[in-house]
Each structure stands twice: as C-alpha cells, then as structure tokens.
Amino acid sequence: MLKRNDGYFLAEAIIVISIIATIITIVYANCMDYFVRQNNELSRFNTIDGLYCAKEVKKYFKNEEENFKNTADGYVNIDINGNDFFKDLDIKSIYFSDYDMINLLSTSEVIPSIKKDLKNMDTKDNKCRYRYIVIFNNNNYSTVGVDCNDS
C-alpha cells in the first residue's frame, strides 16, 4: 500500500506565510500613499501662518461686518481686487459666510478641492454665527469665526 503524505512541511508553511505577509505589507504600504495624500490636503487648511492671516483679515473688515451680515444670500464674496494689502498677503479670495456655509457650498464659487474639504468640516459645534474663509494663491485656506460665544 502506498504511504500517503498529506499536509506540508513546517518549513514550507513558514516560507509561504512569510511571502504572503510580505506581499500584504507591500500592498498596505502602497495604499498608505492614498491616506498620506489626504493628510497633505489637511495640511493646507488652517496652517499657522494662514490662521494669523485670517485674524488680520477679520481685523481689517471689522467695521464692515454689519453690512456683510445683512446679505440675503448667506455669504458674501468680498471684492479684494486692487487691494494691495491682500495682494501682499497672497490672498486670492475672501468669503464671509454663515457658520455652516450651506449657501456658499451650494454654489460653484469655491474651487472643488477646497469645497470638498469645507463640506467635510464639522459645523455642529456652532459657537460662532459667521466665519471668514480666506483662500490663498497657493490654494491653502483658513477660516476664522465671527460673533463667537465662548461660554
């Protein structure tokens, strides 16, 4: 009668498992690239420099805020053409919007990549009523709240 050898040597099993584990590691590491790209998108939002710029924008428009709040559209695309201050700060556009940005994001005003990020922002913690959205020439962007209730 033939002796039947079912199963595998231990060495064979270890080698096969280690090769499969290696291939899985390579696939995972390459997929990580996708997640790192998402992190890079987040690194465009509210950079330290951008935040300080946004604060200065808020200070600049302090006297005009009441006019902005009276808009019926829920947002204002502030005209900064010909303004050297914003040109020197490399600012492309500034929006004054309701805090939840629903009206602004329903238009095609904002470029798609930033619009996508803004849509993902958590606006439930509604301590502020309005916000400025400052978009720079390098497509970094920052937001700063207006009429914020700290209590």
């Binding site: 090769i19 290696t22 291939i23 590691t25 390579i26 590491a29 390459n30």
Partner: peptide
C-alpha cells in the same frame, strides 16, 4: 523579487 519590493517600500 519580493524582497526587493519590500526594501523599496520600507
């Protein structure tokens, strides 16, 4: 071949 790709990925 697998080791080369692994080292590259690391």
């Amino acid at each position: 071949i697998v080791m080369i790709y692994l080292i590259r990925t690391i």
